[in-house]
């Protein structure tokens, strides 16, 4: 089942001489349960692509369909709700809210929705993440790997259609990095979750089912590694 379709995405920064084409007609589709790695050199447009898919940045032209719904045809409030429910974003620098504890950070998307927390799901999640017993800790009381696990928890809490991770291991040592990738793989397997991950790490890229390479804002390679 196709869950994501990206059509002729173009993103242009600046004007005239200083014009930069971050994305230049990018198109691809993703099926539910795919695990895609996006690779490419710095400044190739990976992050821009991810942000546009995640609904935080707007394309200059082109469209993103998620579950057959045109993401950027929505108004600002609908877009916010879309981000809240359909997408899970993971950043290199965790981006946790420093004044909230682990539990609050993880359940933030649910809390923002004003819904009740599904205790079962939270329990399962926190056990999977290996954060049991640390629910009341503040982010600055955790290690980098733990913080990144919290942010993965936040991304998964709402069981979104797509999880987008922007170099989630860029700030971690190899042991922690592998743990994070295992977690993502687990979620991909267990929940049939679609995962798109940007990485510089060849090791991690090779663990993906599909690799998309980007250079100068264009897809230069798109191959399925395994089914």
């Amino acid at each position: 089942m196709e869950i994501l379709r990206v059509e002729k995405l173009t993103k242009i920064y600046g004007k005239g001489e200083s014009e930069v084409r971050a994305l230049d007609g990018v198109s691809f589709c993703a099926e539910q349960g795919e695990f895609i790695a996006i690779i490419g050199p710095s400044g190739s447009g990976k992050s821009t692509l991810l942000h546009i898919i995640g609904g935080v940045d707007r394309p200059t032209s082109g469209a993103v369909y998620m579950n057959d719904r045109d993401v950027y045809a929505q108004n600002e409030d609908q877009l916010a709700i879309f981000r809240r429910r359909q997408v899970g974003l993971i950043y290199q620098f965790y981006n946790l809210i420093p004044v909230l504890d682990v539990m609050e950070n993880i359940t933030l998307p649910v809390l923002m929705d004003g819904r009740k927390i599904n205790a079962e799901r939270f329990d399962e999640l926190i056990k999977t993440l290996g954060l049991k017993g640390r629910e009341k800790h503040l982010p600055n009381q955790l290690s980098g790997g733990q913080q990144q696990r919290v942010s993965i928890g936040r991304a998964l809490m709402n069981a979104p259609a797509v999880v987008l991770a922007d170099e989630p291991t860029g700030n971690l040592d190899s042991k922690n990095s592998q743990e994070i990738v295992e977690l993502l793989k687990l979620s991909n397997r267990r929940y049939n979750q679609t995962i798109i991950i940007i990485t510089h790490d060849e090791n991690i890229a090779l663990q993906a089912k599909r690799i998309i390479a980007i250079e100068d804002g264009r897809i230069t390679r798109d191959e399925v590694m395994r089914k």
Binding site: A80, F82, R83, R84, L89, L108, P109, M112
Partner: peptide, 9 residues
């Protein structure tokens, strides 16, 4: 950050 994880205006 809050906006990116879905806080409305």
């Amino acid at each position: 950050l809050l906006a990116s994880i879905g806080a409305t205006k």
